[in-house]
């Protein structure tokens, strides 16, 4: 059986990317994979519904980080989706027989090793299968502290979960990696691309404009939806922000960790300062979440209200706008 470097991480996709690269001898931290994979994002799409709730996302769409990593010169990845379940499992077994650790996109609901409180129909989870013993697969799931095991038919179900973002048995593995990863241009590229999506999106539901749009809508929820539904919506926003895999603060802390690491690599003071400001933005998101939790629990303090939550989000938006403007200017100087 092959020796796979399982390392627990805060977010599944960047964790899988980092673990797969590390296995091929390129040491890269999760935060770095998240940064150069352009994982940070904001979008609020009320017309897309998840369990009847509007879609709020603090990160790029599933698969985005991996797509960015493939775009790195010298990195090549084999990817395949399937129609047939048996064929998909057979191909997985073949790859494992050749000692290749395989990344899979799965649904969370069908994975028995997941704690039951997290088993929602969420289909964009990533994990690495690195071995098979009898009818059990050995899985390195990046959000778990230790490798786990899963029965073959449960894994097959998880790979063919239906619904939004259906994985369709997607599997992938690295076929080629460069001898050494030159990080400096990748960091600059990643930073440029994130600041662009956060600041310059023509679509008003994305980036800083999206955050302000959320604030505007959120302030009106109690009137539009009634108290109970408004609280449910609020809980949903907080869950998306703080759920396992966000590293807390809606991925802002994870991105700040990336900026800190980049500051070391690039020998650049400004990135350190940006990391500190982004931490401030993350703290504002947390302040909002704490207030939201108090409201949901009916333990609101005197000045907790939907209006003050909207103000809090707007404050976060202003901070993020400042950070990403600064980062954009920095990236311009590092083509």
């Amino acid at each position: 059986m092959l020796d796979f470097p399982h390392k627990q991480s805060a977010h599944c996709e960047s964790g899988v990317a980092a673990n797969l690269l590390t296995h091929r001898g390129i040491n890269i931290s999760e935060a770095m994979a998240f940064g150069i994979g352009v994982g940070l994002f904001f979008g609020y799409f009320p017309f897309v519904r998840i369990n009847g709730m509007p879609l709020v996302t603090y990160r790029a769409a599933a698969g985005h980080i991996l797509r960015q990593l493939i775009a790195i010169p010298g990195v090549q990845m084999y990817q395949k989706k399937f129609r047939n379940q048996d064929e998909a499992m057979a191909e997985l077994d073949r790859a494992l027989a050749a000692s290749i650790p395989v990344g899979l996109q799965t649904g969370v609901f069908w994975l028995p090793y997941f704690p039951k409180a997290l088993r929602f129909h969420f289909n964009a989870h990533n994990l690495v299968v690195y071995g098979k013993e009898g009818n059990e697969y050995l899985i390195s799931d990046p959000v778990f502290p230790k490798p786990v095991r899963c029965q073959a038919d449960d894994l097959a179900r998880a790979r063919f979960a239906s619904g939004a973002l259906a994985p369709k048995g997607k599997m992938y593995y690295l076929t080629q990696v460069p001898e050494k990863l030159e990080r400096r241009p990748l960091i600059a590229r990643g930073v440029r691309s994130v600041s662009k999506s956060m600041l310059a999106s023509p679509f008003p539901l994305i980036g800083v404009r999206g955050i302000r749009f959320l604030a505007k809508r959120l302030a009106k929820w109690p009137q539009r939806l009634g108290r109970e539904r408004a609280d449910l919506h609020l809980g949903h926003v907080v869950r998306m922000q703080e759920e396992i895999g966000t590293g807390g603060g809606g991925f802002r802390f994870m991105y700040a960790a990336f900026l800190q690491e980049s500051a070391e690599v690039m020998q650049e003071r400004r990135l350190h300062d940006c990391a500190a400001s982004l931490t401030g933005a993350g703290d504002t998101w947390r302040e909002f979440a704490a207030m939201a939790a108090r409201i949901c629990k009916d333990r609101a303090l005197p000045d907790d209200s939907y209006a003050s939550m909207a103000a809090c989000i707007n404050r976060g938006a202003a901070m993020e706008e400042k950070v990403f403007t600064e980062l954009q200017q920095w990236a311009k100087q590092h083509p």
Binding site: L118, A293, K297
Partner: peptide, 11 residues
């Protein structure tokens, strides 16, 4: 972090 628990519990 406690607020996640509150939100999850609500769900």
């Amino acid at each position: 972090w406690p607020p996640v628990n509150v939100a999850n519990h609500l769900a």
